[in-house]
Nucleic acid binder design. Structure first.
Length: 537
RNA sequence: GCCCUCGUAGCUCAGCUGGAUAGAGCAACGGACUUCUAAUCCGUAGGUCACACGUUCGAAUCGUGUCGAGGGUACCA
């Protein structure tokens, strides 16, 4: 809708010989509907450049556009705003288009571009917690968005099953096993204290008996498998699946991490100090130099991260999206700088940082630690409120907001959750569609003349623009809010207007088409968010 | 100390690249089901957009500073 108006304005400005750039033209929906359907401030911008009165410019543009069929009315208001009223007849046929495209409405034709989305990427040291949930759902939703925008998407999970953390995990399980069979084994310092460690130990006992004689590696690998299966199950419960799991170990095996060092060395960005190998970040504008290889000979986590990103660049994606929690805030600029130094186009990497959520229980923030086992698992949350609610909840807020999630309220008030509001709108429509099954031929959509109907159609037309916008700025809450607004408009309309009206068949037919198109948009929108759209509730 | 993110109604939060009278849900109060699902709708009340300067015709939005919250600042991941 906006785009249609913008195109007309552009054409007009060319006619009038005004110089402008595409970004200059802003069209938006005025808060006060008396101002019209859409409004632009273009006259103000041109007035600066041309030293001309905004009213004068507006008048010229109005004269030029007034005969265009798209517009029913164009007014000049205030100090020079141009307000447009759209001619409903020029827009009403979008409904047919929506119904024709049905479950594909909103999809863009394939654009032959590949995007890799890396998310979750939790090491297998414990179950996924609600803390991981936001990243998991954000990553999957962004993947869906890119798919709907015509991209080929790969979802990748990056993990590390080597190193200290995993060793401690193995020792923790071994220790619990010994405890179960009554043998002595010291629980490791910094060991994992969660109950799931016991569960793993018990399963080992059941399968292998109490005379099992294996070393730490056995316990570590057993635990890793157990936990990874658990993680995959959790993700599956949220309808999330990955195309690939990338093990950090690969980068050791194929020496990629050392290639990174060598290349940086040749650029004189590497030096040794105190027995460690450092990246000279300060040379290229970073605040600090960083250790890449410890004096023990082990790489720090940064180095494989760098090699991993270099690997992704080699694989030839058009965009690489990294979904991180705020705790990675500090590491990624170094990684990106190194990618750049290695000669890759670092602008292809888009880092999405989301803030953490706090879980409130009885009004208090629950401090969570995987190590201490004081966490709420994502599974637990899904069990309590369901996948739809969880998925909606985690994308309904801006990624930069630190949001508080009150568990008690979420459980108590789950009926009043906004997701039900949206799903209910769709269910109401489908009930009517179930009742009215007469064949409709030659529907006359121009009978939809009520103001609410026209506004709703505008809203439907906005769907495609919204999907493009979400793809560009990568903030899915815009889609969540869109669906909420659309549903609200429908509920209000439904309360005031009957759809099936036996004394006016033609109007009934038009409205059936109308609500059908609303249902399609809600269903498709929810699908992108990974949420079901039941026809009955 | 330094670096990120944030501060909007009692609570949880929207507010797109600055636009006209700042929105929604929850909580409070009052209404609406013989009619396609009341998981809904309508109404009342609730605000110095943390604060102060600045840029601008115009600021919740941009800039600087102050205060407050969270996160990061490791040869942990």
């Amino acid at each position: 809708m906006k785009n249609l108006v913008i195109d007309e304005i552009k054409r007009s400005l060319k006619d009038l010989n005004y110089e402008f750039e595409d970004g200059d033209i802003n069209v938006n929906v005025p808060k006060n509907k008396e101002f019209g359907d859409l409004s632009t401030n273009i006259a103000f911008l041109l007035s600066k450049k041309n030293k001309k009165n905004p009213i004068e410019i507006s008048t010229e543009i109005r004269e030029n556009l007034i005969s265009v069929n798209l517009f029913r009315e164009i007014n000049i208001a205030g100090p020079g705003f141009l307000n447009f009223r759209i001619n409903p007849k020029s827009i009403v046929n979008y409904i047919s288009e929506i119904i024709k495209e049905n479950e594909n409405y909103g999809k863009t034709n394939p654009c032959n571009k590949k995007v890799l989305v890396e998310f979750v990427s939790a090491n297998p040291t414990g179950p996924l917690t609600v803390g991981h949930g936001r990243g998991a759902i954000l990553g999957d939703t962004l993947s869906n968005i890119f798919e709907w925008n015509g991209y080929t998407v790969e979802r990748e999970y990056y993990y590390n099953n080597a190193g200290r953390q995993m060793r401690i995990l193995g020792e923790s399980v071994q220790s619990r096993f010994m405890e179960l069979v009554g043998k002595k084994y010291t629980f490791p310092e910094d060991g994992y204290q969660g109950d799931y460690i016991f569960s793993i130990a018990k399963e080992i006992l059941e399968k292998h008996g109490k005379n099992l004689n294996e070393d730490n590696v056995f316990f570590k690998e057993y635990a890793e498998n157990f936990i990874f299966n658990d993680i995959k199950k959790t993700l599956k419960n949220l309808d999330i699946s990955f195309d690939s799991f990338f093990n950090e170990k690969t980068l050791y095996d194929n020496k990629e991490i050392y290639n990174v060092i060598d290349k940086l060395k040749s650029k004189k960005l590497i030096y040794e100090k105190d027995g460690a190998v450092w990246f000279k970040g300060t040379e290229v504008g970073r605040d600090n130099d960083r250790v890449l290889i410890k004096k023990t000979g082990e790489p720090t986590y940064r180095l494989p991260d760098m090699a991993y990103h270099a690997d992704k660049m080699k694989r030839g994606y058009d965009i690489c999206i990294d979904v991180f929690g705020a705790d990675h805030m500090d590491a990624y600029p170094d990684v990106i700088e190194v990618v750049k130094q290695l000669g890759y186009d670092e602008s292809k990497i888009k880092v999405i940082i989301h803030q953490f959520i706090s879980i409130l229980k009885k009004g208090k923030i629950v401090k969570m630690s995987t190590r201490k086992g004081t966490f709420i698992t994502l599974d637990n949350l899904v069990d309590q409120v369901g996948s739809d609610v969880v998925r909606y909840f985690f994308v309904m807020r801006g990624i930069n907001s630190h949001l508080n999630f009150d568990l008690d309220i979420a459980k108590e008030k789950s009926e009043k959750n906004p997701i039900y509001y949206i799903q209910y709108a769709n269910a109401r429509i489908n009930t009517i569609l179930e009742i009215y099954k007469d064949e409709i031929k030659n529907v006359n959509l121009e009978l939809l003349v009520k103001e609410e109907e026209i506004k709703l159609i505008y809203k439907l037309v906005e769907f495609k623009e919204t999907l493009i916008k979400v793809k560009n700025i990568m903030e899915p809450q815009i889609l969540a809010n869109y669906l909420l607004e659309l549903s609200s408009m429908f509920h209000k309309y439904y309360a005031k207007n009957r759809i099936i009206n036996d004394s006016n068949i033609k109007l009934t037919e038009a409205r059936i088409f109308f609500i059908k198109s609303i249902s399609i948009v809600i269903t498709n929108g929810l699908k992108i968010l990974g949420i079901s759209a039941p026809k009955k509730m």
